[in-house]
Design a protein around this nucleic acid. Structure first.
Length: 495
DNA sequence: AAAAAAC
């Protein structure tokens, strides 16, 4: 952000040589001046080079790869209805379903005046409409990894002609354990392709991923990734754990916040807080991984439409979500992972607007606070918050289990799944399935080791990027990190 | 410690 302030860009989108149909869509989106990352990335992508990008959403990241991708695919766009003429040419992978949906909406709008077709596939929703769309043919596919592999196995998606791959929020995908899925997908793609990797940090793991799957990548970086936007005012309120709900209500009322995202560390905590806020007259709803995809999308849409004051979320909403003019975020809990703090507060103060990041800190969260201050390299302003009339609810801990208007009891079977008739009633269905049946396929058993030359090039690229962000733990040479990547081998290894 | 993601 500070980059823009120091050297205001006088560039326009016209300078990139994008097709008129693309520029028209850009104009209709209301954009006139490229952001720093767009200015740097668009020429690199147009030139067909691999790229590692350090940038967060809200910096214009999505357009920085979608616009040049559309341009590059344009000559192949066909008006023929034959699916064979519409193989997947560009694949964009994201860690969460909401992010996939959002990226897809952007791609759709940028490509609307072209003959290119795009589609999005992710889990939690019916596969059939997705399969039908794939059958009709799409050039640009946006997906979460699991559902994409599902489509591959069902033979509804063919990745054999992908020319451009984008790994969005790659660090997040690794955090979430997507590496095996990513490997399977990557091994299905043609070797001759362009690969773009976006990540908040260039950790050792990210560098190894890049060294293995990218070819001589160019590094693009805007705004150091662990820095927080200067237009976001950060405040920490010391408050007793039991007063947190009242504190949230007080902050919303005192500051007259029209809309706010409140982050919790647990799914149960988020549901509970949403209910408590509702009882205190705040229109609130929860969004987290135990709600059905339908509920998640409805919650997000209603929030975007302004029908909901407080969106109470887990870290499913911490990254990437772009909600215009969000005046504030509140951390009900401080995140265990300091980096998540940066991502959470990045939901406010977007596109140059100002925003407030208000964090509640109970006495047992001091360590998390210290970790955050260490990461952002500055102390945070801490104030004691007195809650004048603590709002206590007798049923706070265990709200009555009441049938909701949709006929389901809250908190049970939220995925909308139906119990199998005749299944044992031992209650095992309420537990997540940890051991998914491992499909017998061999396409993901190829080795995951970068060549020495590739490692060198990634190291050089990362080093040449000014002040490439490094986690202190990843200062060691890449080679030292290569051994312990912990990949599942075909037959169980000693690890 | 917790979250996310395929039936």
């Amino acid at each position: 952000m500070s980059d823009t302030a120091v050297t205001p860009s006088t560039a326009t989108f016209d300078q990139f040589g994008l097709a008129p149909d693309i520029l028209k869509a850009v104009k209709e989106s209301g954009y006139t001046i490229p952001t720093p990352i767009q200015e740097q990335a668009i020429p690199v992508v147009l030139a067909g080079r691999d790229m590692m990008g350090a940038a967060q959403t809200g910096t214009g990241k999505t357009a920085s790869f979608s616009l040049p991708i559309i341009q590059r695919l344009l000559p192949q766009a066909s008006t023929s209805a034959s699916p064979a003429r519409h193989p997947v040419r560009a694949l964009i992978l994201t860690p969460t379903r909401e992010l996939a949906d959002q990226v897809a909406a952007n791609v759709q709008s940028y490509a609307k005046h072209t003959a290119l077709r795009s589609a999005v596939v992710f889990g939690g929703v019916d596969m059939n409409p997705q399969s039908e769309q794939l059958r009709r043919g799409v050039e640009i596919l946006i997906a979460t990894p699991g559902r994409l592999l599902d489509h591959v196995q069902q033979k509804t998606a063919n990745l054999g002609q992908v020319q451009i791959l984008v790994l969005d929020e790659a660090d997040r995908m690794l955090d979430m354990g997507f590496l095996p899925d990513l490997q399977r997908i990557l091994n299905l793609l043609p070797k001759e392709r362009q690969t773009l990797l976006f990540s908040a940090t260039f950790s050792g793991e990210i560098k190894k991923l890049a060294a293995t799957y990218l070819r001589d990548p160019q590094t693009i970086e805007v705004a150091r990734s662990n820095s927080t936007a200067t237009n976001v005012t950060q405040m920490v309120y010391e408050v007793a754990e039991g007063d947190k709900t009242a504190a949230v209500v007080k902050l919303i009322r005192d500051r007259g916040l029209k809309q706010v995202i409140v982050f919790c560390n647990s799914k149960i905590g988020a549901s509970r807080l949403a209910r408590s806020l509702e009882r205190d007259g705040v229109v609130a709803t929860a969004i987290h991984g135990d709600r059905t995809q339908n509920e998640r999308m409805q919650a997000l849409d209603a929030f975007k439409r302004g029908e909901i004051e407080a969106l109470v979320a887990t870290d499913v909403a911490a990254r990437g979500l772009d909600i215009a003019e969000l005046p504030a975020v509140i951390n009900f809990d401080l995140p265990f992972n300091a980096e998540d703090y940066v991502h959470r507060i990045g939901r406010t103060g977007r596109a140059g607007a100002s925003g407030d990041a208000l964090s509640l800190c109970s006495p047992n969260e001091r360590k998390q606070l210290a970790d955050i201050e260490k990461l952002i390299k500055r102390p945070l302003d801490v104030q004691h918050l007195t809650v004048d009339a603590p709002v206590r609810h007798h049923h706070e801990e265990r709200p009555p289990r009441r049938e909701r208007v949709d006929g389901r009891a809250e908190g049970r079977d939220e995925r909308g799944g139906r119990r199998r008739p005749g299944a044992s009633s031992s209650g095992s269905f309420d537990r997540p399935h940890h051991h998914r049946a491992q499909p017998v396929d061999d396409f993901f058993l190829k080795p995951y080791e970068p060549s020495a030359a590739s490692v060198r090039k990634v190291e050089e690229a990362a080093a040449s990027s000014a002040a490439a962000p490094q986690k202190s733990s990843s200062k060691q040479p890449l080679a030292a990190l290569l051994g312990g990547f912990g990949m599942p081998r075909k037959s169980s290894s000693s690890s």
